[in-house]
Amino acid sequence: MSGYRRQLPSMTSLVVFEAAARQKSFTKAAAELGITQAAVSRQVQGLEENLGFQLFRRLHRSIELTARGLSLSKSMSEALGIIAQTVQSITDESKPAELVISASVAFSHFWLLPNISDFRRANPDVKLKIVTQDSAVNLLREDIDVAIRYGNGNWPDGKAIMLFNDDIFPVCSPGYLAEHGAPDCVADLARHNLIASDSLDSSWTGWEQWLSAFGHSSDPRNVTLSCNFYTDAIYAALRGEGIALGWHRLVSDLLRQKQLIRVSSESVRTRHAYFVVLKAAPARKPAVESFLAWICSETNGSTATLQNSPF
């Protein structure tokens, strides 16, 4: 049986191609690899000649992957990601265990950080790094062990395990409630100052979706304050600026401490759920298994299939 070397083109050209495909630019790939743009072009052209077909369509000031190029790009990204993970794993064997966790700003601030001390006490030898950002990280390409995400559970870069759905209802500060009173019903929310949090995620439940679940439309005039981040919307509610939508799992501590008050018995179940997503790797760090057991226990998470509903 012949070795891989005879079956594969130049590994240099494949690595250069992967960078160009990922960056969608010969120039950006050259900067990443520390070579010239002309060298990237030569490597890609040589690879195309070796394979006997085009990998890119050269457009005016841009490049575009062909169908075959896209297929090769996906395989190269996955293969290089696995190699990088393995190299890091065997390199880090002599170093203290480190667990890198990615989470959204809201989940990190309102749930993960308030609860992580329990995990740290049970696992004192694990060094934690929490990467907080709302944009999704790619587990195949980035140095992340575990990601906590809200969505439908279908992500190509890892194995998703459901943690929980959530319930959403209006909340405000005790001061706002004392000054303005509680709404008598859902329709009565129209006379209150509503605080919104914007999201590019279509599955996110904002005021428009929440009110429509009860047969009401959201009048933009009622939203007197809009924030880019959910954390900012909750802080505005804490300061008495109006009524925000509280995600029960995220604001439960604030409700328990009576810093926020629930002002309506009506609630809406989230469209999707929170998941813990594990990087696909030849062998997971022991710390990953410990974290998975801990967070599933804390949230009563399970591997049950999520049953989608309108909300």
Score class of each variant (00 low, 15 high):
residue 37 Q to E: 09
residue 38 A to L: 09
residue 38 A to W: 09
residue 39 A to S: 09
residue 39 A to W: 01
residue 39 A to E: 01
residue 40 V to N: 02
residue 40 V to P: 01
residue 40 V to W: 00
residue 40 V to F: 02
residue 41 S to V: 05
residue 42 R to K: 10
residue 43 Q to H: 10
residue 44 V to R: 02
residue 44 V to G: 00
residue 45 Q to K: 08
residue 45 Q to I: 06
residue 45 Q to Y: 08
residue 46 G to Y: 01
residue 46 G to F: 01
residue 46 G to D: 04
residue 47 L to F: 03
residue 47 L to G: 04
residue 48 E to Y: 05
residue 48 E to I: 01
residue 50 N to C: 06
residue 52 G to I: 02
residue 52 G to V: 03
residue 52 G to W: 02
residue 52 G to R: 02
residue 54 Q to G: 07
residue 54 Q to H: 12
residue 54 Q to S: 15
residue 55 L to T: 00
residue 55 L to I: 06
residue 55 L to E: 00
residue 57 R to Y: 06
residue 57 R to I: 09
residue 58 R to E: 06
residue 58 R to N: 11
residue 60 H to Q: 14
residue 61 R to A: 05
residue 61 R to P: 02
residue 62 S to V: 00
residue 62 S to K: 13
residue 62 S to H: 11
residue 63 I to C: 07
residue 63 I to D: 01
residue 63 I to M: 10
residue 64 E to D: 10
residue 64 E to P: 03
residue 65 L to R: 09
residue 65 L to S: 06
residue 65 L to Q: 08
residue 66 T to M: 01
residue 66 T to K: 03
residue 67 A to E: 12
residue 68 R to S: 13
residue 68 R to M: 13
residue 68 R to Q: 13
residue 68 R to P: 03
residue 69 G to E: 03
residue 69 G to A: 08
residue 69 G to L: 02
residue 70 L to I: 04
residue 70 L to V: 06
residue 72 L to W: 00
residue 72 L to F: 00
residue 73 S to H: 03
residue 74 K to I: 14
residue 75 S to I: 14
residue 76 M to V: 09
residue 76 M to F: 11
residue 76 M to A: 15
residue 76 M to K: 04
residue 76 M to I: 10
residue 77 S to R: 04
residue 79 A to F: 11
residue 80 L to Y: 04
residue 80 L to P: 00
residue 80 L to D: 00
residue 82 I to L: 11
residue 82 I to R: 04
residue 83 I to C: 07
residue 84 A to M: 06
residue 84 A to N: 13
residue 85 Q to S: 15
residue 86 T to V: 15
residue 86 T to A: 15
residue 87 V to I: 15
residue 87 V to D: 15
residue 87 V to H: 09
residue 88 Q to W: 08
residue 88 Q to R: 15
residue 89 S to K: 07
residue 89 S to P: 03
residue 89 S to Y: 11
residue 89 S to T: 10
residue 90 I to N: 07
residue 90 I to A: 08
residue 90 I to T: 12
residue 90 I to V: 14
residue 91 T to A: 12
residue 91 T to V: 08
residue 92 D to S: 14
residue 94 S to E: 12
residue 94 S to V: 11
residue 94 S to N: 12
residue 95 K to C: 12
residue 97 A to S: 12
residue 98 E to R: 10
residue 99 L to I: 03
residue 99 L to Y: 01
residue 99 L to R: 00
residue 99 L to H: 02
residue 99 L to G: 01
residue 99 L to Q: 00
residue 100 V to K: 04
residue 101 I to Q: 04
residue 101 I to P: 01
residue 101 I to M: 12
residue 102 S to L: 06
residue 103 A to I: 05
residue 103 A to H: 12
residue 107 F to A: 03
residue 107 F to K: 02
residue 107 F to L: 06
residue 108 S to T: 07
residue 109 H to L: 13
residue 109 H to A: 15
residue 109 H to V: 10
residue 109 H to T: 15
residue 110 F to R: 04
residue 112 L to F: 10
residue 112 L to H: 14
residue 113 L to P: 03
residue 114 P to T: 07
residue 114 P to G: 11
residue 115 N to T: 08
residue 115 N to S: 10
residue 115 N to V: 05
residue 115 N to G: 05
residue 115 N to A: 09
residue 116 I to W: 09
residue 117 S to R: 14
residue 117 S to E: 14
residue 117 S to L: 14
residue 117 S to F: 15
residue 118 D to M: 11
residue 118 D to T: 11
residue 118 D to E: 13
